[in-house]
Design a protein around this nucleic acid. Sequence first.
DNA 1: TGTAGAATTGTAATGATTACAATTATTATA
DNA 2: TATAATAATTGTAATCATTACAATTCTACA
Lengths: 143, 143
Amino acid sequence: MKPLLEDIKQELKAKNIYLSHQRLKVLECLIQNHCHPTAEELFIGLHKDMPTLSKTTVYNTLRILAESDLVRTITIEGNESRYDIVTGDHGHFKCGSCGMIFDFPIDFDSLLTKELIRFKIIEKNIYFKGLCPECISNKQKIK
Amino acid sequence: MKPLLEDIKQELKAKNIYLSHQRLKVLECLIQNHCHPTAEELFIGLHKDMPTLSKTTVYNTLRILAESDLVRTITIEGNESRYDIVTGDHGHFKCGSCGMIFDFPIDFDSLLTKELIRFKIIEKNIYFKGLCPECISNKQKIK
DNA sequence: TGTAGAATTGTAATGATTACAATTATTATA
DNA sequence: TATAATAATTGTAATCATTACAATTCTACA
């Protein structure tokens, strides 16, 4: 399930995308943490070990990876984009209390509807909002 | 299917939300056109007949209506929010060529997954991207 | 080694949204 | 009806994520 860096390197090579140190680090962060970070969060995390890193490079890298379908841009809130290594179909659940994002499996085929039969579907996105189990039980404690 | 302004007025009254002229116009625009406009588009459309209207008022109105669940904020692209009168479950399809947004019916119940059983789901969103029939056939013509 | 082309960097610009304070409209009450 | 309190509207300024751009640095290849 988890994508291997080696596979990604192959894909990049096939697509003629040069894997610089900066791009590698962005990819590693996305693969290892799988935390759906924002560009800002990625930048802050990587900047510690890489003080010369520029935020523009983070944005550029994410754009390039997204254009080559190695990274998916997650749009849940209007004021921030998050990024996800592409791993096949899944939905996202964002907890409105702690802000954490959870993956959940989804059967996209069950969504096919005759109303869209003449449309060409390129990208499918599902996100839910609500409260995660931990935040629910925390609220109970407060009461 | 189409929400009646009268029903909305009732709901607003029940929720103690004052229906000013500006708010009424925003609502009317959302009901009649059902075009999923951005705040900017709403502002431009309404400004013609209402030169004193402020963009801030459009944003304030949309926020208030969204908070009272009369309007839904549609987040498809990271750089713009669109707004929809709430009419029950449906998904959105955005054509990447003409930019138009289409509604399509969706069976949200079929999405329920045991992985989310301990989560409290407040809001469900589905959007697809791709090409609409018209843009597909236009491309054929060009070829 | 030198050179062309690509990637990175830092800063400035953009553009949607929000904050805020002044003004205007509405409601409640005397 | 007049008045005070409250809420809504307005315009401008601020914010913040993202992008544009030009200078610098890096890489690949001759």
